[in-house]
Nucleic acid binder design. Sequence first.
DNA 1: GCCAACGTTGGC
DNA 2: GCCAACGTTGGC
Length: 159
Amino acid sequence: MPRRYWLMKCEPSAYTIDDLARDGHTCWEGVRNYQARNFMRDDMQVGDGVLFYASNADPSGVTGVAEVVKVGYPDHFAWKKGHKYFDARSPKSEPVWVMVDIGFVERLGETVSLATLKAMSGLGSMMVTRKGSRLSVQPVTKKEFDIVVRRGRRTPSPS
DNA sequence: GCCAACGTTGGC
DNA sequence: GCCAACGTTGGC
């Protein structure tokens, strides 16, 4: 299976690329959308590249690179009563929701903002640049991945 | 904080 | 199966 590429969104109030740099790896819990779930469950493979996207940020955009380090497995947060990701419809016996683990690869020296993504050539069909695109896990092409990463490296990372 | 766009739910 | 109502996402 050839290496695939993804964009994964997260609000900075929940988790940032700096958090991932500190932790080394993390589980990507809380995805409660079937299309996103299917990507994680059916298509993600260890080694796949991930654009780490900060949503609801100032500015929103790609802040770093990660990679898939563990393929889809049950999101056990769905089993925690009282937890915000608890979902009675996803019991241990028949899990509905899935998560993957991602590992830190690099922090981009320059956030590639949504405005930049929209303005750059070659990214016109990227899902995230399209109005109303709310999917939190999206496939991207290798070409798009490379364009974004190269742009983000234009400014050296401070670390 | 506003609100448009979207996904999901549930009545019928 | 249709679709209105609702809740959520996320840019601005």
